[in-house]
Amino acid sequence: MALKNKDPAMPLTPSRDVFITCAVTGAGDTTGRSDKVPVTPRQIADACLEANAEGAAVVHIHVRDPQTGKAARHPDLYAEVVEYIRESGQDMVLNLTAGMGGDLTLGSPDSPLPPAEKGTDMVGAEERLEHVAKLLPEICTLDCGTMNFGEGDYIMVNTPSMLLAMARGMQALGIRPEIEAFDTGHILLARWLQSQGVLDDPIMIQLCMGIPWGAPDDLTTFMAMRQAVPADWTVSAFSIGRNQLPYVGLAVAGGCHVRVGLEDNIWLGKGQLATNGDLVAQARKTIEGTGARLLSPAEVREKLKLQKRWA
């Protein structure tokens, strides 16, 4: 089946109303490189509050083992973070990752099977959504494809059947998926999911640039990714590392919303470690410097037709 944009030749125009997503901690091995990366549920919640106070309407949340700082996915850890945020009274849109549980680390190149126990965490669609079903955030992520991720023998695994099952689960819960596209084929897979009736309008997608071995973050590749997205989808974009902050302006110029945060970059400038609040504040300056306006959490909910489940 051919999947085409409704109007692939439509010119892109800069964004005039922009929301910021702050990805506050992620699952990567960053805690050893910066003491500003939040680890405990309280620290992660406080990072969300800080980012929100600086202008982030949406907070994207992973959790970590409080003892080791390593990536985790236990529902009780998510529950602690969400409880702290909701008790604070600050208004923000909650976006919980659903990417954990698709981790496959093969054995050595000479003996790839069986998979290595360390680094492998493969569970079913229902278990990957367990914390989402329990806490009912407005948004959760859907990593729309399988890819090599970094070095070694690790593979991020998201098969079409797994994505179809997870998208159906999110749809049944009334939660908006944020599609994470790390390469051009992931956009095609997302459009296939739309054709299966499991993605409700308005569809939102995050263009994740510069992650090895996905789409590089050069301008040509970004524009190819951007033009591949259907015209009526809501698009956000970011790059990792040193190009995170320059990508704020590029995203706005390309008609996108913006993501920053310590999941993707730990530096504010050369030799200067950032906090999540620092990165959001800098992004806000760039966005407002273009003449664009920041959207509030309430405006994001209206734009994306989100269901807020808490006062």
Rank of each mutant, 00 (worst) to 15 (best):
E117V: 15
P115S: 01
E87C: 14
V58Y: 00
N52Q: 04
Q90H: 14
M156I: 02
E117W: 06
M147C: 13
P137Y: 14
T68N: 01
D65N: 12
H74F: 07
K118D: 11
R64E: 08
E54Y: 11
P114H: 05
G145M: 09
K70N: 05
K134P: 00
A125T: 10
L96D: 05
D91R: 06
K118E: 14
A116F: 02
P112R: 12
P115V: 04
E117F: 06
A116K: 09
L164P: 00
E138Q: 03
G55C: 10
A57F: 02
Y84G: 01
C48D: 03
E80Y: 01
Y154D: 12
D121V: 09
Q90G: 06
N95S: 09
A125P: 11
I61P: 01
V132S: 01
Y78K: 07
T68W: 00
L94F: 02
L77C: 02
D153N: 10
V59P: 05
L135I: 05
G107V: 10
E138N: 07
A79H: 00
D46K: 13
T105A: 14
A71D: 14
P109I: 13
D103W: 14
Y154A: 05
C144N: 14
D143L: 09
C144G: 10
H60G: 04
A53C: 06
P75Q: 11
A98L: 13
V82G: 11
E83C: 11
E83M: 12
M156N: 15
R64Q: 10
D76R: 07
D110M: 15
R73G: 09
A51T: 03
I85D: 01
G152C: 11
L106D: 10
P160S: 03
V123C: 14
D110H: 15
P160H: 03
A71R: 06
T141V: 08
P109F: 15
I61R: 02
S111G: 05
L142Y: 12
A133E: 08
E151N: 11
